[in-house]
Amino acid sequence: MKGIVFTELFDMVEGLFGANMVDDVLDDCELESGGAYTAVGTYDHNELLQIVGALSKHTDMPVKDLVHKYGHHLFFRFHEIMPVFFEKPQSAFEFLESVHDYIHVEVKKLYPDAALPHFETERNGDDKLIMVYKSRCPFADFAEGLIHGCVEFYKEKIDIQSEDKNTDEEYSRIFTLVKQ
């Protein structure tokens, strides 16, 4: 897992709950990295799960909600940190469609060791987009947060339905986006 996911999470937690919350959460966790993250580093994704778990305890919010909120937040942050990815796509569908073919390709160039989830899309007419999330990490909620962030970013009215299709080998969720 890329370090940026940790640093951005801590930034959001600091903003919402104050710096002490970050310390409290880290105190609760047994982390290999010792809680020191840099955006360009790569860390075990289990550390993120521990952190989110500790955060849920301290904030009294469900993990699912927290992760979803973080995804939503991170999308807007991406726009600030990596504006190049936003040059071409003019709509939520276009952006989502570019994730697999473009963004992930570029990320791979910079971080050849990055383990990225599979993110296929399929257009069904102008108004419907089906996205399939596949990964060995249980971050479907995180992805759903990002998608919601995206739709909100482009200020579009889109209904998002999701359905889990997990197997023994991987986690999978199908998102069906329909324009309103």
Binding site: D23, L26, G34, A36, Y37, T38
Partner: peptide, 13 residues
């Protein structure tokens, strides 16, 4: 502690 974490992160970076 925070400073130490930041130092460690900077060092990593």
């Amino acid at each position: 502690k925070r400073l130490a974490r930041e130092k460690a992160a900077r060092q990593q970076a």
